[in-house]
């Protein structure tokens, strides 16, 4: 019988420090997955942690050093091995969004799962309408996938806008290079600065506090709740709906993020108490 807890050994093909806190890993793995799904990443001796896949072309993860597993993972380099289980979770409804306009809203490390959506959309660009990407960062040093995102700004495929909190010389230079693309403020300010179509589908990922603000802003603007999708974070220990660390909601409406999510709609947020 297949043991769901048994990790598969995979080799790290490439690594790169994205910021002082986040490290990117390309894994030598063949995997059938959907944007928005996550893996249980295993580092023998340190344990396991749920981590979103941040790519569509191959299997990549972007990990912030915050705990035991992620710290151990950060010590791994090209050629080293780690264990993976999964993919787990439902992922974003990419088929449903086909033919429609799409807005991606990422805050901080929320960039990671949405990069998987972005790469998927770019790979299937003709299937989607206008694509807008809103990315909120604290400062330029904390911006993930900087080079590839700046390159995207030069192209027509995606309408990319960045909200930042701390301005420095480099941002001022980028503002000159890409006029109207960098805005001071929270990610929600981009909805005021950039014209958006309220019939668009929206996919959101960011720190827990961000969802409340983003949902409120989109409600004000009149977006359809059933077109807003967000991916949520919990401490999923098993990924299989058994350890119950990721339970949300009350009574019969309660859900397990690992099994029923991690992607939920704004409609779910209405029906499931304390989902966001």
């Amino acid at each position: 019988m297949e043991n769901e807890f048994l990790p598969r050994r995979v080799r790290i093909e490439e690594t790169k420090m994205m910021t002082s806190l986040e490290k990117w890993f390309k894994l030598d793995a063949q995997l059938d997955f959907k944007p928005g799904q996550f893996l249980e990443i295993s580092v023998a001796g340190a344990g396991e942690a749920p981590i979103s896949i941040c790519s569509w072309n191959g299997v990549e993860i972007c990990v912030r050093k915050v705990g035991r597993v992620s710290s151990a993972l950060h010590q791994r380099e090209k050629g080293d091995f780690i264990g993976i289980r999964g993919p787990y979770g439902n992922g974003f409804p990419m088929k449903e969004i086909e033919g429609e306009k799409l807005i991606l809203v990422a805050g901080g490390l929320g960039m990671a799962p949405l990069r998987s959506v972005l790469q998927y959309v770019l790979k299937n660009r003709k299937k989607y309408g206008e694509v807008t990407f809103f990315y909120g960062i604290k400062c330029l040093e904390m911006m993930l996938f900087r080079d590839e995102l700046l390159k995207l700004m030069e192209e027509e495929n995606v309408n990319l806008h960045i909200a930042y909190e701390i301005e420095d010389e480099e941002i001022r230079n980028l503002k000159k290079r890409f006029p109207e693309r960098f805005h001071k403020g929270m990610v929600t300010t981009l909805f005021e600065k950039v014209k958006v179509n309220t019939e668009s589908f929206v996919v959101v990922c960011g720190p827990p506090i961000m969802y409340k603000f983003v949902l409120k802003k989109m409600e004000e603007l009149g977006f359809y709740k059933e077109r807003i999708y967000m991916t949520l974070e919990r401490r999923m220990k098993c990924g299989t709906g058994k350890c119950r660390h990721c339970v949300v909601g009350i009574g019969s409406s309660s859900k397990l993020i690992c099994r029923d999510g991690p992607v939920f709609s704004a409609i779910d947020a209405e029906l499931i108490r304390e989902l966001v």
Binding site: F5, R9, V43, A44, G83
Partner: peptide, 12 residues
Amino acid sequence: PILKFREEEYFE
């Protein structure tokens, strides 16, 4: 115990 491991090899 659910698994034994040696480096990144896991055994049930």
